[in-house]
Design a protein around this nucleic acid. Structure first.
Length: 232
DNA sequence: AAAGGATCCAACCGCTTTACA
DNA sequence: CTGTAAAGCGGTTGGATCCTT
C-alpha cells in the first residue's frame, strides 16, 4: 500500500523561495502560530507543500535564528557533540541556540570535516587517521568537569533498534566527558582565563604543538578571533 | 576576460517516528 | 492493537558564487 504524497505536487512551487512567499509565511505564522503544516500552505495562500513551508520557517524565517559565521566555541562544541552523538544533527542543534540542524550539517560537511582532516583526525571516528589498531579499545575523549555538565544537561540516546540496549546515557558511555555546556551560550564571549583552563580538541586528541591548537596558542592570538574565522 | 573546477548552502526526497482515531 | 496522517530527520542534489588557471 503506497504512502500518500505529502502534498499535491502538480500545483506546488519548488525551488528558491521568493520574498513574497517568505512574507506570506511569516505573516501567517505570526497571526496563527505554527500549526498544521499540511493545511498551512492553502490557508496562507502559498503554492508550496507543507514540508517545504516547515523547512523554510525552521531554517530561515524564525526570529530566533542567529545566522552568520560560526564561532570557535561553536566549532569546538560541534566537534565534541559529534564525537559523542554522530550525525544526530537535531540533537547537536538543540545544544547550539540559534542554529538549525540543517545549518550545522552543512557547516560540518563543508568546514569541520576538512578542518579535522587537516589535523589528521578522522571526522567520522574522531580518531587520529594513523592511529594503530591497538587504540581501538580507547573509546572516550576526556574533557574535564563532565559530571556537573551531565547532571545539568543530561543527554540520552535512544537506540530503539537495539533490543538489548534501549537507552544509553552519556554519563555511562563517557563518564569523563565534558560537553562544556555550562560555559556559556555561543554568543557570549568567553574569558581568556576560562578558555585557557580547558584543553582544546586538538590537545585532547594528543596532537601536540599543532598550529590548529586553540588553547596553547590562544594567548598569542586572542586578539585575532576574527582573523581565524572561516572564509564565508 | 573567460572557462572550468571547487565550494557553499538552500531546498528537496524519502525514510522513520510520533500522534491519534 | 492497528492503520493512517503528520511531523521530524538525515542524506543528497543542484544552482549560485567564488577561485584558479
Amino acid at each position: 500500500m503506497g504512502r500518500s504524497p505529502c502534498c499535491e505536487k502538480a500545483h506546488t512551487n519548488k525551488g528558491a523561495w521568493t520574498k513574497e512567499e517568505d512574507n506570506r509565511l511569516i505573516a501567517y505564522i505570526r497571526a496563527h502560530g505554527e500549526g498544521c503544516w499540511r493545511s498551512l500552505p492553502r490557508a496562507a495562500g502559498l503554492l508550496r507543500c507543507g514540508k517545504s513551508c516547515r523547512l523554510r520557517w525552521i531554517n530561515y524565517l524564525r526570529s530566533d535564528l542567529k545566522r552568520g559565521n560560526f564561532t570557535e566555541e561553536e566549532d569546538d562544541l560541534i566537534i565534541k557533540l559529534h564525537s559523542l552523538l554522530g550525525n544526530k544533527w537535531s540533537l547537536i542543534a538543540a545544544r547550539l541556540p540559534g542554529r538549525t540542524d540543517n545549518e550545522i550539517k552543512n557547516y560540518w560537511n563543508t568546514h569541520v570535516r576538512r578542518k579535522l582532516l587537516r589535523r589528521g583526525i578522522d571526522p567520522s571516528t574522531h580518531r587520529l587517521l594513523n592511529e594503530t589498531a591497538a587504540a581501538h579499545d580507547v573509546n572516550t575523549i576526556s574533557f574535564t568537569g563532565a559530571k556537573d555538565a551531565a547532571k545539568d544537561y543530561p543527554i540520552e540516546i535512544s537506540l530503539k533498534k537495539d533490543e538489548n540496549m534501549k537507552k544509553i546515557s552519556v554519563e555511562e558511555r563517557c563518564p569523563d566527558l565534558n560537553l562544556d555546556l555550562k560555559i556559556s551560550p555561543p554568543t557570549e564571549p568567553s574569558t581568556e582565563t576560562g578558555r585557557k583552563s580547558t584543553l582544546c580538541f586538538v590537545c585532547n586528541r594528543g596532537v601536540n604543538n599543532s598550529k590548529e591548537c586553540s588553547c596553547c596558542n590562544f594567548a598569542a592570538t586572542a586578539h585575532g578571533s576574527s582573523s581565524r574565522q572561516w572564509k564565508q
